[in-house]
Design a protein around this nucleic acid. Structure first.
Lengths: 244, 244
DNA sequence: GTCGAGCAGATTGTCGACAATATTTCGACC
DNA sequence: GGTCGAAATATTGTCGACAATCTGCTCGAC
C-alpha cells in the first residue's frame, strides 16, 4: 500500500542553499509548513533521502529535522522503519482542544493582569470588526477575527510557557481547523462570550477573565463533540471546520 | 569563563554499545537523565564531541539528541555557538507550575469520569499512607506519596495529550523540585485538599474534581510565590524544595 | 599602556559512505 | 496453484571527515 509516488509538494528552490545561513533550520521550517498546511497527507511516509533532495540538504540534516518534528508531535517514528506524518484521530483532536482550552484559560487570566491599554484597544477593535462581519453574514471573516482575538489574548498574557504549548497544540490541529462558528446560531453566542472575556480583561479581573474564557471554551468543546458524533454517521463534509 | 573540566558524570558504560539496539535512544535517555537529575549544571556547555565520547556514540547521534532536547525545552541552542543546559529562572518556574496546574486540573476532571474502581482504591490507599506519614512527621515520605497521588490521577485521566505535556513540564522543573509541604502548616492543608479531590473523583463529579484540584494548585502556586519572594532576600537555602 | 588586526585553536554545520535492518521479489517445492 | 524460503532491494542507523564559523590570543602600532 501507499504506492503513490511521493508528491512531496514544493518543487524545492534549488540544490544550492541560495545563501541562507542555516540550511537545517530552513529545512525544518519548510517541512513543518508542508505538514501543518496539509500538503503532506497523514500516514505519508517520510523517506529521508527523498526529503534530502527535495529540501536541498544532506540526509543528516533531514534526520535532525525529523527528530525535532517527532518531539513536537507532528511525525511518528518507528525504529528501523522510518518516519510518517502523524495521524491525529478525532479523539486526539478533542484531547488537544481540551488541553489548549485549559491553557488558554490560564492565558486569559494572566492577560487580565498584564494586558496593556493598547492591547485592550486592539481587542475592542477586533470585537467591533467581528460584530460587523456578523451583521454582514461573513462567517469566514468572523472566524479570522476570532483567531486574531485569541492570538492577542495569548500575546497579552506574556506567559511564555503557555504560549509555547498552545502553539505546539495548534500545529497539530491545523489539519482539522474545525470552525464551530459555522454551526447555526453558534456565532452570535460566540460573540457575546468574547465580549465578556474582553470586558473582564479590561476590568483587570483575572477570575472573571478565566471563568469567561472557560465558559466560552466549554461551549466550543461541546459543539465540537456534537459535530464529531454527527460526523461519524454522514462522513461527507470535509470542510466541516471548527475554530475557537 | 567556564574553564572547569567537563565533569559530565556517568563514566560511560563503554565504547561498545553493549548490545542495546538503538544507541541513539540510549544516548538520549542518558543525557536527558543527566540534565533532569541535575548532574549537569544549568548553562553548562554541551560540546558535541565530548558528549560523543562520554555517551559512546558518534557526533551525529549527539546532534540529533541535542535537537530533541532543545525541542523539549531542556537545552538552548545558539547557531554556531553550540548548546547549553537551559537555565530556568524562577519566573519561568512559576510559569511552568501554572501551566502544569491548568493541565492537572483538566486531568482531574477527566479522571472523575474515567477512573476505574481499582485506581480509586489505589488513591485511597495512597491517601492513607500520606496520613500515616503526616502523623509520623515524615514529610519527605509524605511528599513521595503526594507525587504518587498526582501521578495516579494523571494516569486515571487517560488523557494522552495532557499526560505528555505534563511530563514535559515536569522534566523542566525537577531541578527545582520545590516541596511546599515543607512549609510549616502546609502539609495538613495539603492532605485535606487531596482528600477532597479523591472524593470528587470517586463520586464521578468532574466539575467538583476540577475545582478541588484547581483549589489545591492555587494554594501550591501561592506558597511557591511566597517562597520565591522570600528567597530573593536570603538566598541560602538550596534544598528549599516545592512539590505539589 | 591600550587598542586593533591578524593568526591559531576550538567547535559547529554539513556531507557522503558504510553497515545493519526491514521489505519486496522471485523461485523452488509441495 | 499456493506457500515457504532466500536472494535482492530499499531504507534506516551510524560514523568520521571536511569546510565554515566563532573564540581567544599574540603582536605590532600608536
Amino acid at each position: 500500500m501507499d504506492a503513490m509516488p511521493p508528491p512531496q509538494s514544493v518543487p524545492t528552490t534549488a540544490g544550492r542553499n541560495g545563501r541562507g545561513r542555516i540550511a537545517a533550520d530552513e529545512a525544518y521550517a519548510r517541512l513543518r509548513e508542508d505538514i501543518v498546511r496539509g500538503r503532506l497527507m497523514p500516514n505519508q511516509r517520510l523517506v529521508e533521502v527523498d526529503l534530502a533532495v527535495t529540501l536541498g540538504v544532506g540526509r543528516t540534516a533531514v534526520r535532525t529535522v525529523l527528530a525535532r518534528l517527532e518531539q513536537e508531535g507532528l511525525v511518528v517514528h518507528e525504529p528501523n522503519r522510518g518516519a510518517r506524518v502523524r495521524m491525529v484521530t478525532e479523539a486526539e483532536a478533542l484531547e488537544i482542544t481540551q488541553a489548549r482550552g485549559a491553557l488558554e484559560a490560564l492565558a486569559a487570566r494572566e492577560a487580565a493582569v498584564k494586558a496593556t491599554p493598547a492591547e485592550v484597544t486592539f481587542m475592542r477593535e477586533t470585537l467591533a470588526q467581528m460584530s460587523a462581519c456578523l451583521k454582514a453574514g461573513d462567517l469566514l471573516a468572523y472566524s479570522d477575527g476570532n483567531a486574531r482575538m485569541h492570538a492577542k489574548i495569548i500575546e497579552a498574557s506574556r506567559h511564555h510557557t503557555a504560549t509555547r504549548l498552545i502553539a505546539g497544540l495548534k500545529a497539530q490541529m491545523v489539519r482539522f481547523q474545525y470552525r464551530t462558528v459555522l454551526v447555526p446560531g453558534r456565532s452570535a453566542r460566540s460573540f457575546v462570550e468574547h465580549t465578556r472575556i474582553v470586558d473582564a480583561i479590561e476590568a483587570g479581573d483575572p477570575d472573571a477573565a478565566e471563568a469567561a474564557m472557560r465558559y466560552h471554551l466549554s461551549h466550543v468543546a461541546d459543539t465540537l463533540h456534537e459535530m464529531t458524533s454527527a460526523h461519524a454517521q454522514h462522513r461527507a463534509s470535509p470542510s466541516h471546520l471548527v475554530h475557537f
